[in-house]
Amino acid sequence: MNVKAAAPGLQVPKEDNPRAYITDAEAVDVPRSAYYLRVLGDGDLVEVDEAAVKTNAKKGDDDGQR
């Protein structure tokens, strides 16, 4: 599932590396584990539609930076 932090500036530790964080800047693909489901339930993460992630990635390809 793809998730992002629910609020700007919020950093949510990753399950497998608590010194790496999920932020609101970019969606991250994570497993549907008990840890991430709990954090989603707490409201610190929001699930992002996979189609929106792919659309944003395509837009990033066309920004002229190569």
Rank of each mutant, 00 (worst) to 15 (best):
N17K: 13
T23D: 02
D42M: 06
P8K: 13
D24A: 13
D61F: 10
N2P: 01
M1I: 04
A20E: 14
E47I: 00
V3T: 10
S33Y: 03
D62H: 14
A5F: 10
D62I: 12
V30H: 00
G64Y: 07
D42F: 06
D61I: 08
R38Y: 13
T23W: 09
D16Q: 12
S33G: 01
Q11E: 15
Y21N: 06
V28A: 09
V30L: 00
D16H: 15
K14F: 00
Y35P: 01
R19A: 14
K4P: 01
A52R: 06
R19P: 00
D42I: 11
N2V: 03
K4R: 15
A34V: 11
D29E: 15
G43K: 04
Q11M: 14
N56S: 08
N2A: 00
N17I: 06
Q11C: 11
Y36H: 05
I22G: 01
N17H: 13
Y21D: 05
D29R: 08
D44W: 11
P18W: 10
Q65R: 14
D63V: 15
V30W: 00
A20W: 07
Y35I: 10
A6I: 04
P31H: 07
R66M: 09
K4Y: 07
K58M: 10
S33V: 05
G43R: 03
V28Y: 01
M1D: 02
R38Q: 14
V46F: 02
A6T: 07
P8C: 06
K54E: 15
E47Q: 14
R19Q: 15
G60T: 09
T55H: 09
Y21T: 09
N2Q: 10
M1V: 08
P31A: 03
P8A: 15
A57L: 08
D61L: 15
V39H: 04
V3L: 02
P13C: 05
N56E: 15
L37W: 05
L10Q: 13
D44M: 04
L37R: 12
D16I: 09
R66F: 14
G9I: 10
K14G: 01
A34M: 01
A51D: 14
D62T: 14
G9F: 05
E50S: 13
K54R: 13
D49G: 06
A57R: 11
P13F: 08
V12H: 06
E47Y: 00
V48E: 10
N56T: 08
N56I: 03
L37P: 00
L10E: 15
D29T: 12
G41D: 11
A25R: 10
P18S: 03
V30S: 03
